[in-house]
Amino acid sequence: MSAVEVNRARALEGVAHGFLGRRGGVSTGLVAGLNVGTGSQDDPAAIAENRRRAADAILPGARLVTLYQVHSPDAVTVLEPFEERLRPRADALVTDRPGLLLGILTADCAPVLFADREAGVVGAAHAGWKGAIGGVTDSTIAAMEALGARRERIAAAIGPCIARASYEVDDGFFRRFAEHDPANERFFADGGRAGHHQFDLEAYVAHRLAAAGLRTVEMLGLDTYADESRFYSFRRATHRGEPDYGRQVSIIGLGA
C-alpha cells in the first residue's frame, strides 16, 4: 500500500496541514488514487476510506469537515462537526476549535490554507477563478478576524492548482479580469492562438492575499494539469473527453 503524499508549506510550519494529491488511495479506474470527491462516480466506500486516510495523514483522530463548494465568495465558521449531508454551500471555512480538520476539494482550482498561530485560528478556501475574483480569500480573512485573528499575523499558502502554462482562456475571460482591475492584465500572457491568453491563477490569488494585508504568502508552484501521476485535473479530463475526474483535498486543523 502506497503512502499518502502530503505537500506542506514552510509558511504554515507548526500547524497541522497538508496539500494532498492522488497518491496513497484505494480508488481505481479514471479516478485511481486518493479521490475524495463525492461528486465523482467513484465507489462511496472508496471515497470514505480515502477521506479517512487523508485525515489521518494530517491529524490522526481529528474530524474532517468539508463543504458543498459552489464557486462562491462565501466563508462559514465551523464550531462543531457536521454530517456530510448537511454541508453548507460555501467555498471557505474557518475555525478556532481543536480537533477539527477543514478540508477543501480541488481538481485545478487553487486551495488556500490560512493560519494565525498566535490566535489559534485556521482557515481554508477554494479559489477557482470565480471565487478568486469574487473575493473568497477576503471573506476567509474576515471570518478569521471575527474569531480573533489579525490579518498581519495570518500566514497563507496556495497549493496545487492549474499553472499558467496549462490554463488557456479566451478574450472574454481576459476582459472580465481587466475590467475588474486594469492591473490584472499582468496575470495573463499571450496564448498560442489568436484571441487566447494564458492565465496565472496562482499569482492572482497570491496578489489578492497580499493586497488584503497578509505579510506571509507562499506559492507551492505545483501544476495539477501537467503532473498526472500526482494530481487530479478537471481540465485534463475534459480535454481527453473522460467522463469522470477525481478531486484532491487540502486540509488544515488545530491539535488539541
Rank of each mutant, 00 (worst) to 15 (best):
L20I: 03
A115Y: 09
I47S: 05
A132C: 13
G192R: 14
F231A: 05
D171R: 15
E5L: 14
L86A: 14
D108R: 06
R85K: 09
R8Y: 00
E202Q: 10
F187M: 10
G253M: 04
D43C: 10
F199Q: 07
P111K: 09
I158F: 01
L12I: 06
A165C: 10
H196T: 15
T224Q: 08
V70R: 07
N50T: 04
D244I: 12
D43M: 08
R63S: 13
E202R: 11
A211F: 01
A3T: 03
A46L: 08
R51N: 08
A163K: 02
D116R: 12
D200R: 07
G25H: 08
L147T: 00
D91W: 00
N7S: 12
L214C: 12
P44H: 02
A143C: 06
N7A: 15
G99A: 06
A157R: 00
G21H: 03
L222V: 10
A48C: 06
R51D: 00
G123C: 11
F234S: 15
D171G: 15
E83C: 09
Y204V: 09
H207D: 13
G18C: 03
V94S: 04
T140G: 04
E152I: 09
I58H: 07
R175L: 15
G18W: 00
F188K: 08
A146R: 11
P98Y: 00
G195D: 05
G192D: 11
I104R: 08
I252R: 11
H180N: 15
I104N: 07
I47E: 03
H71W: 00
P98R: 07
P88L: 11
G123F: 00
M1C: 12
L222W: 12
N7I: 13
P60L: 05
P98A: 09
P111L: 04
A3M: 04
D170F: 12
H239M: 15
E168L: 12
D56H: 07
A115P: 10
C109L: 01
A210P: 02
A256K: 14
A107V: 07
